[in-house]
Design a protein around this nucleic acid. Structure first.
Lengths: 233, 233
DNA sequence: GCAAGTATCATTGTATACAATAATGCACAT
DNA sequence: ATGTGCATTATTGTATACAATGATACTTGC
């Protein structure tokens, strides 16, 4: 009865993984990721009502997983729920994205500072490899890979900060602006500069220079914001 | 069959309001707040399994609202959910609390800076009244009220920052450490100092001095951390 | 005695049924 | 024509039923 390509009951969808919802194979997890992506990608209009049955039908599942997903999205702030009334899209605006970058500029700095104290040798090697390989792919203009490596670089530092709280928060923000990051790193000039900045941050962390690492990581995000402005975002 | 004092189906429980879950009158909302409080207050042991039926029975509701609440708590990081297995308490540790304060020290600074640009006259009056009244209650040792006023002072600045994202994040953290804040402000010396710091931050905001406001708000939290350390927390 | 396999039970995952609430539209009075 | 009230419908809120999964304990063969 429901054999569209949207059906989530099969195992054939290569859904993007969300760090927040560990349960990537449950219906709820997939519905959550799906709606989230659809909101972040702008498929839904702002304030559009998200009806449980409609979405359920569209995705080939019952109301239950949809409800749970919507409730979680409410907590993430991507959905507004008015009791006994409905769930409404509350996507992130241009201003929200800007705010997130500014917030990140502080928190990435803090993560780099903490990483200086707690990073493991393995993680350092990880970062060195990342910078080295990224350099190769930038030359080859492999933009998909570049974005992926950029994600990994930052995620590694989040983890190395040794703070679950900070890691969790930065991961969430990082995902929020994924769409923007793809655009930003799509310019070779920016990708190159970003990787140089990564290298500098890595050196500061290796040298266990907390002040410098914080400053460089902070400036790395500020530099990203400047680039976004240049691109008219 | 279920007429214990824990029953949430009645309207007689004065549940604490959570800013995140707007639906304070739905069963889910109340179950959410209840479990959250119980985790934050330490009623549950770390890694304790939270079984849907048990909690449902305890609270006099079915599994459905409990499930939804647990899924939300997972997103908040207070509960670990292992698919097909169970939900486990993942309370916040001493280190988490410390991390939150450090993170807050940056974000409160940012909020104060942004507030300088966007705060309304009404909000300024609000803050002035807050500081003035707090001074009175500190003299009277009305600690409940002092904590409440402290919350309001900070929440007002969060709102005045004009950033939904930042407001949301700071509110969440603020609630996380509520238990600690009660202890901290329970010392007259600290309550007095905190209010003086509030007054200074307010003056900086009124003077639209972003750099100073950020610095003072940042230091206000650092000063709180120092006090916590002094109290052996 | 012990390990592997299996049956049983407990628990979660999903779907659906029923209840409560809010929205809609129509009839009717003014 | 307009607004009020009621009936109808749509939608969410909650409970429960059923399915699937994982845990447990027992049995059986060695």
């Amino acid at each position: 009865m429901n054999e569209t390509k949207n059906d989530l009951t099969g195992r054939n969808e290569a859904e993007e993984v969300s760090k927040e919802v560990t349960d990537k194979y449950s219906l709820r997890g997939r519905v959550f990721n799906r709606i989230r992506e659809d909101i972040l990608s702008g498929k839904y209009a702002e304030n559009e009502e998200l009806k449980e049955v409609s979405i359920g039908n569209e995705l080939g599942v019952s109301r239950t997983p949809v409800r749970e997903a919507l409730r979680q999205l409410e907590l993430e702030g991507l959905v507004n729920i008015i009791p006994n009334k409905g769930a409404y899209v509350h996507g992130i605006s241009q201003k929200d994205i800007h705010d997130i970058y500014v917030i990140r500029s502080y928190l990435e700095g803090l993560a780099a500072r903490w990483a200086c104290e707690r990073i493991t040798d393995e993680e350092i090697e990880n970062l060195e490899e990342n910078v080295y390989i990224a350099n190769f792919h930038i030359g080859k203009k492999h933009y998909e890979t570049i974005v992926e490596l950029d994600s990994q670089f930052h995620e590694t530092i989040y983890k190395a900060s040794g703070s679950k709280i900070l890691e969790h928060q930065l991961s969430t923000y990082h995902h929020y602006v994924e769409r923007i990051r793809k655009i930003s790193l799509g310019r070779e000039e920016r990708a190159k500069k970003a990787n140089e900045e990564h290298a500098a941050i890595l050196e500061a962390i290796k040298g266990r220079n907390g002040d410098l690492a914080e400053k460089l990581a902070h400036e790395h995000i500020i530099s990203t914001i400047a680039n976004l402005n240049k691109q008219g975002l």
